[in-house]
Design a protein around this nucleic acid. Structure first.
Lengths: 110, 110
DNA sequence: TCCATATTTCATGAATAATGGAAATGTTTA
DNA sequence: TAAACATTTCCATTATTCATGAAATATGGA
């Protein structure tokens, strides 16, 4: 992961609505949630939801998929793993491998 | 960890200088770094370094300790673990315990 | 006490992001 | 094709964040 990427992910998660979005999508796991479900769950306007979801998609933390006239959003669990690896790089006394095997599992094998 | 806390940590890490600070302090581990060493390493003015370091301390991601006329900064590794737990809560099909044992080790037992 | 060093605090202007209304896009059903 | 629905894009206003220079604080040594 590049610095630029990591920054846009942290920036994306530094806003209450967006952090909530990420968290309910992590809970939702592989089945994701529809844009409408998300805006209802968080009680925000559809356009606000849309803008914030696209910020999360641009950061690559989420991905989306059109299904008929709805759009379903998912967390990119791989990206979470990469982010943690980037952050903890060279931790453990310069032996990132020590952390690696652990980090590999943080995203619950999604 | 509270939502407010998590937000201030992500917000703190969403700025290039501050993310760099966190990363070199993670590498430095338990021995931390002096304010002066940090501003030299990242080639930024002391006052800019200080302002950004205090944003990180306020978020609780870092702590500081005066040593004579210098001030030494450290990563709060416990806080990183708590943050990951907060973020991944209810992942793994509603069984956070499954992730917990893994997350416990992400911070390299610091 | 006086000075040098290390660091922080303050005030300011410039850049960036957030919100919400209105209009536009794409998709399905009648 | 027309209407209804789900979602996105655009735009203006307001709010927040940023880097900087200058001044202030705290510590140790002469």
């Amino acid at each position: 992961m590049e610095m630029f990427n990591a920054l846009s992910i942290f920036s994306a998660m530094s806003q209450p609505v967006r952090l909530d979005m990420v968290r309910i999508l992590i809970k939702a796991g592989d089945s994701g949630l529809l844009a409408g479900e998300i805006s209802q769950a968080l009680d925000i306007r559809p356009n606000t939801a849309s803008t914030n979801l696209s910020i999360l998609v641009n950061s690559q933390l989420l991905r989306k998929e059109r299904q008929g006239r709805t759009i379903r959003y998912f967390v990119n669990f791989e990206v979470i793993k990469d982010l943690l690896t980037f952050l903890m790089e060279d931790c453990c006394g310069g032996n990132p491998e020590l952390c690696q095997s652990v980090i590999d599992k943080v995203a619950c094998d999604h």
